[in-house]
Design a protein around this nucleic acid. Structure first.
Length: 215
DNA sequence: TAGGCCATCTGGTCCT
DNA sequence: AGGACCAGATGGCCTA
């Protein structure tokens, strides 16, 4: 899917077609106590769900309305509640879809990984965090070496080989945040995607970093 | 079958 | 009042 930087909803959800639960049609909503539509559907609220008498509910209702505005029947209010809930559900679904789209976009700019392997949400976030940190460190070291022309930066081959090169300096580049400030309090270093040794700028061309380097 | 991941619904809270 | 955001609950799907 193409990225959508504008933030506009990339996923136009077919809201009506994929209702997991039988959407309460607007013609229901009378005072009669009806069975809950689905196990997950919590009782909408108060009187309606529990089948409380309509008299008590309407009295409460009138009190809520201050007794001044035009009295609305329980039927109308029930429809309103349903309609509001349904709209809120749609918005929430859309919001989560947008969030997922952003997450997909993030996956897209992370180093390639086996096609059939998809990072989970938490893995994507942790991976991105570490990846950004690694790139930042790389840039920092590149700047550093730029002013020390007598000491050439290590070659890509040296840096990308896990065992190769001197581990000393590069080895100290693992983000401290990834250990102590990880997204999950329970996350240990072992849970996080491991970073490759930071590459020199010349190695940062697309494809230079393979996903496997992070494993 | 247990556990992980995910999508969705829902009610509460805050903001405009 | 209505929308955005959030966290909890629930059920489905998949995998070891």
């Amino acid at each position: 899917m193409a990225p959508h930087p504008s933030g506009a909803p990339a996923v136009q959800v077919t809201l009506q077609t994929e209702q997991p639960f039988p959407s309460a049609s607007d013609d229901e909503g009378s005072c009669s106590a009806s069975a809950p539509p689905s196990p997950t559907q919590a009782p909408p609220d108060g009187a309606e769900a529990q089948g409380v008498s309509c008299q008590g509910a309407s009295r409460k209702l009138r009190a809520r309305l201050g007794g001044r505005s035009r009295p609305k029947s329980e039927l109308v209010l029930s429809r309103q509640r349903r309609s509001r809930r349904k709209k809120a559900n749609d918005r929430e679904r859309n919001r989560m879809h947008n969030l997922n789209s952003a997450l997909d976009a993030l996956r897209g700019v992370l180093p390639t990984f086996p096609e059939d392997a998809k990072l989970t949400k938490i893995e994507t976030l942790r991976f991105a965090h570490n990846y950004i940190w690694a790139l930042t460190q790389t840039l920092r070291m590149a700047d550093h070496s730029f002013y020390r022309l007598d000491s050439p930066a290590p070659s890509c081959a040296e840096l990308s080989s896990p065992g190769g090169g001197s581990p000393g300096e590069w080895g100290s580049l693992y983000s401290p945040v990834s250990q102590t400030g990880s997204l999950s309090p329970a996350a240990s270093l072992e849970e996080l995607p491991r970073l490759p040794a930071p590459a020199s700028p010349a190695c940062l061309r697309p494809g230079a970093l393979a996903f496997s380097d992070f494993l």
